[in-house]
């Protein structure tokens, strides 16, 4: 209960800051809509030339784009604002302030900045998913349920990766550049993994796992998910979350013992 209250407080504080910069809010919303529009334009242009990409039809890729858009906005309004501060805390030595609070530090760094004002982009993403599902004729309850499950799993993977990369800041100082690698998922993940040459498929499954983050939810939404990939996605998400949490606790232990 206390944690929900804290999250509400964090949101409130972040919103207040956001309201200060109002044209920034407008500009971002405009940019979000525009970027979705241009992405769709490009997708349409591509399908003027070819009939399928990696065996996926236009409507199936449409769902994929919707999922990338959705995940992108979650990263933009939540993960990036919160997790990118880790490197700043560490560099400025402000970490002690977090550690003395009677709340787990991972919770604090995860939920501190939730820029809920930018939800518009999220709606655009969900709208694109819905349109794609409608056009592929897969508007069924089971598909929605599976989509929800694997979208969350995908987010968990992205979160874990980002957290793990940012945690490296405790050991390597100028890590934020590397951590911003996380944005690659939105380009690489906009296409079916099957559209890449074989060596790149391996890369995008196990190293930068866009296969699990974007492809699996899109397959789930269109009722094409095989149980192997489904189980693989859930397993990957669980492992990633455990790994990132473990790395975090290791970093915190190191940090406290080093600074005392």
């Amino acid at each position: 209960m206390k944690y929900f209250k804290l999250i509400a407080l964090f949101i409130r504080a972040t919103v207040q800051v956001q309201l200060e910069y109002r044209s920034g809010t407008f500009g971002r919303a405009f940019a979000n809509v525009l970027s979705s529009a241009t992405t769709l334009l490009l997708l349409w242009a591509m399908f003027q030339q070819v009939s399928s990409i990696g065996g996926w039809s236009f409507d199936q890729v449409l769902v994929l784009i919707g999922i990338v858009t959705t995940i992108d906005y979650v990263v933009e309004i939540w993960l990036y604002p919160s997790l990118s501060k880790i490197t700043t805390y560490v560099q400025r030595g402000e970490f002690d302030v977090l550690l003395v609070k009677p709340v787990p530090s991972q919770f604090l760094v995860t939920f501190r900045y939730l820029q809920v004002l930018d939800v518009l982009g999220l709606l655009v993403g969900l709208g694109i998913i819905g349109t794609g599902m409608y056009r592929t004729g897969s508007l069924e309850f089971i598909n929605f349920a599976l989509l929800a499950v694997f979208l969350v799993a995908g987010l968990v993977i992205i979160y874990s990766l980002y957290l793990a990369l940012s945690t490296l800041a405790f050991w390597f100082t100028r890590i934020e550049e590397v951590a911003s690698m996380i944005w690659l998922h939105s380009t690489a993940g906009s296409f079916p993994v099957a559209a890449y040459p074989p060596w790149a498929r391996l890369l995008f499954t196990f190293v930068l796992p866009v296969a699990f983050v974007t492809n699996v939810p899109a397959e789930a939404a269109t009722g094409r998910l095989s149980w192997e990939w489904g189980l693989g996605g859930l397993a990957f998400a669980t492992l990633a979350l455990c790994g990132a949490t473990w790395l975090w606790s290791l970093a915190i232990r190191n940090y406290s013992s080093a600074s005392s």
């Binding site: 409130r12 919103v15 207040q16 309201l19 200060e20 109002r22």
Partner: peptide, 16 residues
């Protein structure tokens, strides 16, 4: 000008 608090922020967002 900005009044303190969330409502203040909201008001100044709408009409600055």
């Amino acid at each position: 000008q900005k009044e303190p608090g969330l409502m203040g922020s909201l008001r100044s967002f709408v009409r600055r």
